[in-house]
Design a protein around this nucleic acid. Structure first.
Length: 860
RNA sequence: GCCGAUGUGGCGAAAUGGCAGACGCAACGGACUUAAAAUCCGUUGGGCUUAAAAGGCCCGUGUGGGUUCGAGUCCCGCCAUCGGCACCA
């Protein structure tokens, strides 16, 4: 307590209700939010006020339009919420409450993305089952969210670790597994429509031996996104490349559609660009090079077939399958040594540390198909097996990497593109004019590409080709706390379980520790693993992304036990009209979810091919020191302490008042105090404290007409708040409400009608306070049943406006003008103004610009 | 290196090409109070002019140019900070 030495005074002058627990109420509350916030939360819960009925249910009103507003659901960590989490949640809650007042059926759900590594790590440390800690963490998160007064439809709460949920995650996996992508129809179809010999080679879920990010410390494989600078994102342990049998999802089949269908989405352009870059489409050609003394050919991918004449050597990735075949005996030892070194390199060494190009000559030569020149074939780890064909034609004159390599190993460099101007052709990578290239000499690059590609195609030497950076999705994890695959193995072949065998529930385990061999922890559950006498279960589990790939669908119909989502519910609610979350999910989550949605759409299970129509990213909230909040900096602020001191409404309001939603901004307790003062002013506009220290309705509140200026400010506020909520500019909406309150604070009479209207405007932002005051005003019905007020422009315009008079662009004078004044009248009034006359000193103005109702600029 | 975002008072910020700094914080002054807290009222970008005030003038939105009667806003170049990607042929 701050007033340690003044307890007697403290007790004598404070109302009784504030002192029953003086240790917890550090200071006097500016308004008694603690008296009613939990009361309203209870009322909302008891009355199921925010439950949205589905089509076909009793209270469903088909006449209303729908609005689906969704938050990225959280991973319930042990630490609880910090003030960054509820930023987006507050924004969506304001929109949800606003849309309800506007007469929409609003779907506003919340749930838990609860599978994941931290719970498993905790289990390893403590021996507590992840299910238990998950349950506890969820309870903590949920109580924190409820304390903020969010209007979630808790009847739709979902939890990705609930068998009733992941049963359908597994079901969707089966659909993916039992589908293939038909390039003719450009969509997924049931595997039964595939006419080839080996369906397993085209399934959208398949098994492959792939080099993966193996982290010995965690005893698991990590996805690329979980590896940061060659170290594990969790724990910072070293990560090495190692081939392993893994489940993959064929997301690359959808690369084109994932790019194209971004077009019509209302997403920030930056996020669309990020996704496009991630998918990384590039157009070019594949060209076949003959190998001297061998039948095999090497296929390369290039975006610049017009530089073919400049290809003075070739490079294969060290892991390329033809390396063994073509390497000459003299070079074999050197090549083998290089390949071994490359294989041992971690990602860190391969990228960050390898500023110097390395490579070795195979001893073999290829024939350049354009000029039949013999060129040496090298291997080097700057060529990646996973991109294109894993082999390149090296054109050192017009590619920085090839140039660096050629210079280091003294390979020939030949210019074949003449840059515009007098730039040096060597090292020029842009478009120019083809030179030293008989077939295309003199052509600009774009045309040269077209012509030489056609030339190659005619001769069967190459063809147009498109490549993507996007790789197939590594979909398995060697962990315990995830969805088991509904797959069994028999005679070294995988096959799917029947839908009636779902869900496949993870077996209870005593010991969650990684085996360390790369074999998943599920291998320890011997009985569970044995599916039948000759079949065993798949031991991997799905990655955490799986559950979040379709949760927005489940929210439409969370209790359905017949289908992953009921058809009518899905049709009615989808798509998500507004999706709010952090930029950290800009690529992966959003890409994966779009991919699943498209598969389900192709197979006819959902009605839209894109899940999220409008996307908004909230900015990060920094600590009071302007640094990112983190345990180590000790600058984490929990909503609990803020709410205890200032109340949930002040917390919500400050989250939104800090600045634009998308922006990064630092927390400030002073700022919370500021909005809390504003809410107290609202309270005292309607309530006053009597002699006994009790709050009662203020006698100033009366059923009076509004003065003209009051009418104007009321309608200006309705207009501004409405428009600002629509554009998610909550900070300026709040500013306008402050202006409103400031204007009414000193009025003799507080017009009750204006107060009611204002409370409706305030309701989405500060639902507890506005509900309480609505009740205190004895206004009819519940505030949540009201309809959003409209405004009338006629109250906003005045008869007279103040206009600015400028001379040469500088403000020199102001004058009042009727809004009806014509331009000519305004001009005359300005020119005859004494101050302007004085400034002009008899000179004739050269030009007069009149902007009606705004200003006059006189150019002298 | 490439791509993207952002640079405005002491601080968070606001401004359809038309009065830069609304609103809030902090600070200062006043009212109320024995006093303080709370509350209410007022001042608050920098400089010059003035005994003081009123008033007037000049400068000011990262930086240098440009377009315009007029630029925080539009165009070109540069700098800084943050975020993403990073041998993708």
């Amino acid at each position: 307590m701050r007033v340690a030495n003044s307890k007697s005074i403290f007790f004598s002058c404070f109302p009784a209700f504030l002192i029953h627990n003086p240790m917890s109420s550090e200071r006097r509350k500016p308004y008694p939010f603690d008296q009613f916030e939990s009361k309203w939360q209870r009322i909302w819960e008891d009355r199921q006020l925010f439950h949205a009925p589905n089509p076909g249910e009793k209270k469903f009103d088909a006449a209303k339009p729908k609005f689906y507003v969704l938050d990225m659901f959280p991973y319930p960590s042990g630490a609880g919420l910090h003030v960054g989490h509820p930023e987006g949640y507050t924004a969506t809650d304001i929109v949800a409450r606003y849309k309800r007042l506007r007469g929409f059926n609003v779907l506003h759900p919340m749930g838990w993305d609860a599978f994941g590594l931290p719970a498993e790590q905790y289990a390893i440390k403590t021996g507590q089952h992840p299910e238990l800690t998950t349950r506890e963490n969820i309870a903590k998160f949920k109580s924190q969210l409820k304390a903020i007064g969010f209007s979630y439809d808790w009847a739709r709460e979902i939890n990705t670790t609930d068998p009733r949920y992941f049963k359908w995650t597994q079901w969707i996996f089966l659909k993916i597994y039992n589908s293939w992508f038909n390039p003719k129809t450009n969509k997924a179809e049931p595997i039964s429509t595939y006419r080839g010999d080996d369906p397993d080679s085209v399934r959208l879920a398949y098994v492959a031996e792939v080099p993966v990010n193996w982290c010995p410390e965690l005893g698991t494989v990590l996805a690329n996104e979980e590896v940061v600078d060659g170290k594990s994102e969790v724990g910072g342990f070293p990560v090495v490349r190692r081939p392993m049998r893994q489940w993959m999802l064929r997301i690359t089949a959808y690369a084109e559609r994932l790019i194209d269908e971004l077009e019509d989405l209302d997403w920030p352009p930056g996020i669309k660009l990020l996704q496009r870059n991630w998918i990384g489409k590039s157009e070019g050609a594949e060209i076949d090079f003959k190998i001297d003394n061998h039948d095999a050919r090497i296929r390369v991918f290039t975006t610049r077939p017009d530089t073919l004449y400049g290809a003075t050597y070739m490079v294969l990735a060290p892991e390329h399958s033809l390396v063994d075949l073509i390497t000459t005996n003299e070079q074999r030892a050197e090549v083998r040594a290089y390949r071994e070194r490359a294989a041992r390199k971690s990602d860190l060494e391969r990228t960050e540390l390898s500023k110097e190009k390395t490579g070795v000559f195979t001893g073999a030569h290829a024939i350049n198909p354009a000029n039949n020149e013999e060129i040496p074939i090298w291997i080097a780890d700057y060529v990646l097996l996973g991109y294109g064909t894993g082999a390149i034609q090296a054109v050192p004159a017009h590619d920085e990497r090839d140039l660096e390599f050629a210079r280091k190993f003294d390979l020939p460099i030949r210019a074949v593109v003449q840059p515009p101007g007098d730039e040096d052709p060597i090292g020029f990578v842009g478009d120019g004019i083809a030179i030293n290239s008989p077939i295309i000499d003199g052509l600009p690059s774009r045309e040269a590409i077209r012509k030489i590609t056609a030339w190659l195609e005619e001769r069967g030497l190459g063809k147009r080709a498109i490549n993507y950076k996007l790789r197939d999705w590594l979909f398995s994890r060697q962990r315990y706390w995830g969805e088991p695959f509904p797959i069994v193995w028999q005679d070294r072949h995988h096959r799917s379980l029947g839908e009636d065998e779902l869900p496949v529930v993870p077996p209870p385990l005593e010991d969650y520790k990684p085996t360390g061999t790369g074999e998943p922890p599920l291998a320890k559950a011997k009985d569970w693993v044995r599916y039948s006498d000759n079949a065993t279960r798949e031991l991997n589990v799905m990655p955490q992304w799986a559950g979040s790939c379709w949760y927005f669908l489940r929210f439409c119909d969370p209790l359905n036990d017949k289908r992953f989502v009921g058809q009518d519910a899905e049709k009615y609610w989808m798509n998500v009209d507004l999706y709010v979350g952090g930029t950290e999910h800009a690529v992966l989550h959003l890409l994966y979810a779009r991919f699943w949605q498209k598969v389900l759409f192709d197979l006819g299970y959902v009605s839209t091919s894109e899940p999220f129509q409008r996307l908004v990213n909230q900015g990060i909230i920094l600590g009071e020191d302007g640094q990112k909040m983190s345990k180590s900096r000790g600058n984490i602020i929990s909503p609990d302490e803020v709410i205890a001191q200032y109340g949930a409404d002040a917390f919500r309001l400050y989250e939104m008042f800090m600045g634009p939603l998308e922006q990064m901004k630092p927390w400030s307790m002073r700022g919370v105090e500021g909005v809390s003062r504003f809410l107290a002013r609202v309270w005292r506009l309607i309530m006053r404290e009597n002699q006994a220290g009790e709050w009662e309705l203020s006698p100033a509140v009366d059923d009076v007409d509004l003065a003209k200026n009051e009418q104007k400010i009321l309608h200006a506020t309705i207009k501004k708040v409405t428009e600002d909520i629509e554009s998610l500019s909550f900070n300026t909406a709040i500013s306008q409400m402050m202006i409103f309150v400031n204007a009414f604070t000193n009025a003799e009479k507080t017009p009750v009608s204006a107060m009611r209207t204002f409370l409706i405007l305030l309701n989405p932002f500060a639902p507890h306070l506005s509900s309480e005051l609505w009740e205190k005003l004895k206004a009819p019905g519940d505030i949540t049943d009201q309809s959003w007020p409209g405004y009338d422009e006629k109250f906003l315009v005045e008869d007279e406006v103040e206009m600015v008079l400028q001379v040469n662009g500088k403000v020199r004078e102001r004058m009042k003008m009727s809004i009806l004044a014509s331009e000519e009248e305004i001009k005359q009034a300005a020119l005859t103004n004494p101050r302007i006359q004085e400034l002009l000193a008899g000179k004739t103005p050269r030009k007069v610009i009149v902007v009606p109702q705004k200003l006059v600029n006189i150019v002298a």
